[in-house]
Design a binder for these strands. Structure first.
Lengths: 100, 100
DNA sequence: TTATTTCTTTCCAACTCGGAAAGTGATGGC
DNA sequence: GCCATCACTTTCCGAGTTGGAAAGAAATAA
């Protein structure tokens, strides 16, 4: 077994879920994400900030009915990092398909 | 997306690796595990203790050349918990095969 | 102008982590 | 028998992470 190389930014349960949730989507709204994860505004905000600082997430802000809203998107780099992390987990789990 | 239900005992990187390493084996020696994970004796000991307290790991102790040695095994419950955790991760990753 | 919405930042208490050091128990060597 | 050594285990401690509440900030509604 090669030593696991986890991306700690992604491995944290809440951030892993954020990435998993964003991964099949173009973008997701802050509040949707917050309700999905069952966390407070502050917690989601802080996790998104960490993901942004890692270059994994990017935001779009605009108004809906005069109210400011925010959407998060996984960047290309974020998608790659998430995919690698998942691959690493699958490798660990012995699930990775062996090339024939 | 259903809310993820991670087993925090297993999710921690080092313990995830311990489970992954033990999973295909009958048992593994303390020192082998320690070198595999690149952690100190104390760290491995503490992680194994947590896994034992969760009922996921069991030990066998006996002597080799008059020296006491220890082997760790994943219990049935531990194998189940590890498998569930991996399934949960795969589900999150959207990798799980959909039953036809 | 004040209230409200939608995040963001600060504050704080709880928890986890890892390694070093000290401790324990069982030999091995002399 | 006695001290050293091995194989862990436990304690200690500093560092880092987490989450929620509370306080802020910025924009718009009323």
């Amino acid at each position: 077994m090669t030593r696991a190389r986890f991306d700690t930014v992604i491995h944290a349960p809440n951030r892993l879920q954020i990435c998993a949730f964003l991964s099949p989507l173009q973008e997701a709204e802050f509040q949707v994400l917050r309700d999905e994860l069952h966390v407070s505004d502050s917690v989601l905000s802080k996790h998104l900030k960490q993901l942004e600082e890692a270059g994994y997430v990017r935001f779009r802000k605009s108004a809906v009915n005069g109210r400011q809203r925010m959407w998060a998107t996984l960047t290309t780099s974020g998608r790659k990092a998430f995919a690698s992390h998942i691959e690493e987990l699958q490798r660990l789990a012995g699930v990775a398909a062996k090339p024939s």
